[in-house]
């Protein structure tokens, strides 16, 4: 009787089942967004929500910074000491380098243009793979520009909005970068694996790799300049059936403390 009544009066049927219709509509809207991530309309929605989200987080970022202050202070003192020691070694190397350059009559070197930016939001709710920074298209930022910190490569620009950008960190499993070992020039691909962390893949079993070897970006990448530090070899293993080594890296950048970053805006060589 009730069903017959509902069928005869579609409005009543719709009202009584409205939660199901709302759920279906919400699922359809979400699926549309999921399958159309790169559409301008979706970008516009994302930009609108990101503006309010980032604005809120920027205003109250002092809470997080205050909590991190003591830890940062200790770490910075330690780092300053390390830097002082490294600086004295580098001075020696610089003088030596200068002498050798003069001998080789070296004229040009690559210099890069940087833009310094601050991290506004960290995507830490479920998957810590991206951050939002306060540089956007108004600052000359474009997608795929490399993002670095003094410790090394952090990621690349993923999406650009007028006043902010989303940075895809190396912790994103879709992030790959061509790399090599600094010492013996063994080449491979660095990517993130959920199970083991940062991995250097495609390194032949015959290659000589040792623990603590430094891994840097290779000269065969179209996006990243060569020589940017990525990490250090932490673990090496070999699988029986594989032609390649399994190399796990310790990232150079501490992603949990990412506050200031630099975007490399120009890679073009410039005469010295």
């Amino acid at each position: 009787m009730l069903n017959k009544d509902l069928l005869e009066r579609p409005n009543l049927f719709f009202v009584s089942k409205r939660e199901y219709f709302t759920l279906i509509a919400a699922i359809l809207v979400s699926l549309y967004a999921l399958f159309n991530n790169d559409r301008p309309q979706i970008d516009a929605i994302r930009s609108f929500f990101l503006g309010s989200y980032a604005g809120l987080q920027k205003k109250f970022s002092w809470v997080r910074q205050f909590a991190d202050l003591q830890r940062d202070n200790t770490a910075l003192r330690q780092r300053a000491t390390q830097m002082m020691l490294e600086n004295s070694r580098l001075r020696e190397a610089l003088l030596e380098n200068y002498r050798l350059r003069q001998m080789l009559d070296y004229r040009a070197r690559e210099t890069w243009a940087f833009r310094a930016g601050r991290v506004i939001t960290k995507q830490r709710d479920q998957t810590p793979v991206s951050v939002t920074i306060d540089l956007g298209s108004k600052d000359g930022i474009r997608p795929n520009m490399p993002v670095v910190t003094p410790e090394g490569l952090a990621g690349k620009i993923f999406k650009v909005f007028p006043q902010m950008s989303i940075v895809q960190l190396m912790l994103d499993r879709n992030f790959n970068v061509s790399a090599r070992l600094q010492g013996n020039r063994v080449y491979g691909i660095v990517s993130w694996s959920e199970r083991s962390g940062l991995e250097l893949a495609s390194v032949p079993r015959t290659s000589k790799v040792e623990l603590s070897d430094v891994v840097v970006t290779s000269d065969s990448s179209a996006l990243f300049p060569p020589g940017l530090r990525i990490g250090q070899v932490k673990e090496i293993s070999e699988e029986k059936a594989s032609l390649f080594k399994v190399i796990i890296l310790e990232p150079s950048v501490d992603f949990s403390r990412l506050e200031e970053i630099f975007v490399i805006t120009s890679l073009s060589p410039r005469p010295q």
């Binding site: 919400a26 979400s30 967004a33 999921l34 991530n37 929605i45 994302r46 479920q126 989303i166 895809q168």
Partner: peptide, 25 residues
């Protein structure tokens, strides 16, 4: 609750690099 979840999900997803709309779903 569905409407709130969907909207909040879109806000939460705004800063991620992939799968925009997953949190809202």
């Amino acid at each position: 609750a569905i409407l709130a979840g969907c909207l909040v999900g879109f806000v939460q997803d705004a800063a991620v690099t992939q799968l925009y709309g997953l949190s809202s779903l």
